[in-house]
Amino acid sequence: MSKSVAPVNLAEKLSQFSELWSQKKVAVLNDYEVKLAKLKGEFIWHTHEDTDELFLVLSGRLTIQLRDGDVVLESGELFVVPRGVEHCPVADEETAVLLFEPAGTLNTGDVGGPLTKAVENLD
Rank of each mutant, 00 (worst) to 15 (best):
E19N: 12
V5G: 10
V26A: 03
G84T: 11
L56S: 04
L20V: 02
P102W: 02
Q23S: 14
T63N: 06
E77N: 03
V80S: 09
L29R: 04
V8P: 00
H87G: 06
N9D: 15
G69W: 01
P7V: 14
R67G: 01
M1H: 13
S59Q: 12
K35Y: 02
G113P: 03
E101D: 13
T95E: 07
T63M: 09
A118W: 00
K38D: 01
S75A: 15
N9K: 11
Q16T: 15
W45G: 06
D52Q: 10
V90W: 04
E94V: 15
V90F: 06
S4F: 07
A11I: 12
G60W: 06
P114T: 08
G109E: 00
K24D: 05
N121P: 02
P7H: 12
G84E: 10
G84W: 11
V119L: 05
L106N: 10
L73D: 07
L66N: 06
L122T: 11
K38T: 10
F17N: 06
C88K: 12
E86H: 03
E42F: 06
P114V: 09
C88W: 00
F79C: 09
V90E: 01
R61N: 10
V34S: 03
D68F: 02
Q65F: 05
N121C: 02
A91Y: 07
E77F: 03
V71K: 13
L122D: 05
L78H: 11
S4Q: 12
A37W: 01
L66K: 08
F43C: 07
V26T: 07
V26Y: 04
M1N: 10
L39G: 07
K35W: 04
L62H: 05
V119R: 08
L78Q: 09
S75D: 01
N30D: 10
G113H: 06
L98W: 01
L54Q: 05
G104L: 08
